[in-house]
Structures are given as C-alpha cells and as structure tokens.
Write a protein that binds this DNA or RNA. Structure first.
Length: 132
DNA sequence: GAAATGACGTAAG
DNA sequence: ACTTACGCCATTT
C-alpha cells in the first residue's frame, strides 16, 4: 500500500527532449532523480531503479529513459547504471564507445571486458540506501 | 492495429 | 560462463 512516492523534480526541460505525447514523463523524472543520487564509485542496475520506483517489471523503461538522459539537465550519471550482470550495456549510447568506461574508471570503478569489476560490492541499492 | 525493437531480468539447458 | 527462451512495456515502423 505504500503507493509510489512522487518526487518533485521540476524538470521542465524534459518536455522538450521527449518526442510525442510521452505518458511516462513522471516515470522518467523519478529514474533521473534516483540516478543522480548514486554515490560516486558505485553503480546500480536498471531493475533496481525500476523496483525502487515501484514499477518493478519495467526495467526496460528505465533503459529507455536513460537513452534520452543525455539531453536532460542537470546531467544524469548514466554511466553508473548497468544491467543486472554488471555489463555496460549502454556504452554505445555515449559519445564514444569508451566514454562510459572512462568515466567509471575516473571514479574508481574498474571495468574489465565491458563488465564492472566486483559488481556485487560496487552495487548500490536505491531501495535500501534511500531508506524507502 | 499487428509486428518489431530495445541502455532489462529471470529461468533453464 | 554462454545461449535460448520468455515476460515486460513504451516507442517505432
């Protein structure tokens, strides 16, 4: 019964980057809000974010939201979000195919063969850390 | 409107 | 660890 908690973001700019009548602007806002709270040097997964929001099974939608996050301001640390296997599945969406890995390395997160090293230890669970 | 697509996830072989 | 298959849901064709 703890219905989803609405997070006030005021992402007015988001409207302009989303094409036609997007229904889940609300969803996207929450995804970004959580993503921005990922501590430096930590990573999380799409599914974890989806679960934290409450949609649970809509991990794909989190990925979709991230695909347009590059146009959103303030900037979203999308490089800290990987899939459940710890793979940098979205690295191709960055400026260069190595940019995502570089950003992570810069924050102390080592990436080997497109996968986060010690992913389990680096994993940051929003549902727990945000005390939801 | 049906079929395909996708920065996903879990289960099974 | 890798591949196949299925479920999920908004967007695109």
């Amino acid at each position: 019964m703890p219905a989803k908690k609405k997070i006030a973001t005021g992402n007015a700019g988001l409207r302009s980057v989303i094409p036609t009548g997007l229904k889940d602007l609300d969803f996207a806002e929450q995804v970004y809000e959580i993503a921005r709270q990922i501590p430096k040097g930590r990573v999380t997964s799409y599914g974890a974010i989806a679960k934290c929001i409450g949609t649970g099974k809509s991990a794909r939608l989190v990925g979709w939201a991230m695909s347009v996050c590059g146009k959103v301001k303030p900037k979203v640390p999308a490089h800290r979000v990987v899939n459940s296997a710890g793979v940098l599945s979205g690295k191709l969406a960055f400026k260069t195919s190595t940019y995502m890995e570089e950003l992570l390395a810069k924050e102390g997160v080592l990436v080997k063969n497109d996968k986060v090293v010690d992913f389990k230890k680096r994993f940051w669970n929003p549902s727990e850390e945000l005390s939801l």
